[in-house]
Structures are given as C-alpha cells and as structure tokens.
Design a protein around this nucleic acid. Structure first.
Lengths: 150, 150
DNA sequence: TTCAGTGCAAACAGTTTGCACCGAG
DNA sequence: CTCGGTGCAAACTGTTTGCACTGAA
C-alpha cells in the first residue's frame, strides 16, 4: 500500500537516515538525523540558514550545521550546489541519484527551485576538451520566472 | 600595420577607454581609466582583489574598486561573472561582444581561464520552458585541468 | 559652488576555527 | 577514559555603506 503524505517523494524515515549515516561511518546524533531528514523532506535544495531554521534554530548552533554539511558533502551524503546566490545549497544524494548528474531552475521572484532531469553538454564539453582541458566539471544553473509568478 | 605587444588582443588604449566611459556618461577619473584598461589588458576575467592589486593597491581604496565595478556593470561596460568561486570576476564587454553570450573554463590547478566561443543550450532551455519558466537566464562555467598543468 | 569620486572605518553576511566541555561508547 | 560532537565567541573574506572631504567643472 502506498503512503500518502505532504513530504516530497524523496522523504526518508528516521530509520533510513540512521542507516545512511551508519553506512558512511557517521555518528547518528539527534542533530545529524534531523538535518538529514529535513533535507530529504525539502522540496528543493536548502541553504545552511534554512536547515538551521527548520530543525529549530535553538536546537543547535549554526556552526554545527556548517560542520555537518561539510562532513556530509565529503561523505557524499549530500551535494553542494552553487545556484548563483551568495551562499551554497545542499540536497541529499539519493542512491539512484548518485551518478545522476542534474541541474536546477530557480524562480527569481519567489525563489522556488525545480530540478531538471537532463544534462547533455557533451557537444560543448568536446569543445572544452579540444582546448586542452581534462577532468572536466561544470556548473550549470538556470533562473527564470515560474508559472505561478508570471 | 599591425601592432605587436604582450597584451591580449582586446587591449584598449587610454584614449579608447576615455571614449568608452564618455559614451556611458561616466566621469573619466584616473582610477576608472586604470581599472578599465587593466581589465582590457587581462588575459581573463579579474576579481576585485586582482584589479586592485594590478592598478597598485595603494593607488586607491578597494571599496572604490567595488563601487566602480558596480557602476561599470550597471552601465554594461563590464560583465559580472560567477565562476563558482566565492567572489565575482569581471570582464569588459567589448562592442562586438555585447550580444555574444559566452562561457569559460578555469583550470583548477593554476587558475588560468579561457573563454568558450559557443553556447548552445537551446535543447535544455526548451525543457526548462516546458516546466513553466520564462525569462530564462543561466550560469554555465567549466573547470578542469589545463594542458600545461596536466 | 556643487556634487561625483574617494578614503576610511564600521557594518554585514556567510563561513571557518580555536577552545572548552560533555556525554556516549 | 577517550574522543567525536557541540556551543560559543572570535576571526576571516568578500562586499556594502555612512560620513566627511576634496577637486574638477
């Protein structure tokens, strides 16, 4: 039987969160569990400030959130995104997602963020390779005005 | 007869710089002329700190460089770039260049930057449009290891 | 005389770090 | 007892801003 709730489809239970942390050899503290489930419930990538706010800004210090995000990123539990803002956002790297590189569109009006399923830059990357660059990475993020705000 | 010098092909003379500023209704002060010619001589987009250093860090305050870059950007004399670093870079918008949208590759080892002449994201942009977003903009920057560093 | 341009210092935001403490293993 | 996790405060970086001064038009 399918579960119905308001959270996004990638929401994970505390149980699953415990497992993910254990797999990566990260201690399962209240704060880390909260951060991970909060991120998975979110409908888009969150900034450190947003995470801190959502888990209850008095439940832990914001520096702890920063430290946790660094740790999660290193352990590839989350992905750090530069969406052209002056801070980073983070999203969980779900297992299926792991090798599924993707990008985002952000509404310049309401700030809502949607993920894009595709990313075919091979033609451009070929050109870059011809310039002599190897081990290519890229940042590609879109912004626009979403349907609601239009 | 062609001129030969070490500067990049987009280098402009102080004379040309004066004209550019005048066209935009910007006062031609020593500092602004220096910033503009320095940017044009550069072999890639510069950060505020780099500009400040190159015009002689004691020749003006760094806040002046920030203010000038804001003004230049508003007047579309320069373009502000987010190359995934934690600061912006700026490059002159040469007249031919004006409507010529382009991107960059940055070497993660030596920091050298090359411009890419192409930018064909239409297939991806179509997908984004279908998600209901209009008035699209994007950030696309590559990084890799350049031939020299490899 | 007027006002844009500037220097200087303080204020900011996001992020990092040193240090002391504490609690789970 | 040990050590990772944490709070707290200070430090840092890139950037912005308020204020007073000054020099060119």
């Amino acid at each position: 039987m399918k579960k119905h709730h308001h959270a996004c489809k990638h929401t994970i239970t505390e149980e699953a969160a415990r497992e993910l942390l254990a797999d990566k050899g990260i201690n399962r503290t209240r704060t880390k569990l909260d951060i991970l489930t909060t991120l998975s419930k979110a409908h888009g990538p969150l900034s450190v400030a947003e995470i801190h706010e959502r888990i209850g800004s008095d439940s832990c210090d914001i520096s702890t959130v920063f430290r946790t995000m660094t740790q999660f990123t290193e352990k590839e539990l989350v992905r750090e995104l530069n969406l052209g803002e002056d801070f980073f956002r983070y999203e969980v790297v779900s297992p299926e997602d792991k090798h599924h590189h993707h990008h985002h569109v952000r509404c310049r009006n309401c700030g809502s963020i949607k993920a894009l399923e595709t990313c075919d830059l091979t033609p451009i990357e070929k050109i870059v390779s011809k310039l002599g660059f190897s081990d290519l990475k890229h940042v590609l993020e879109f912004s626009g005005i979403c349907a609601k705000c239009h």
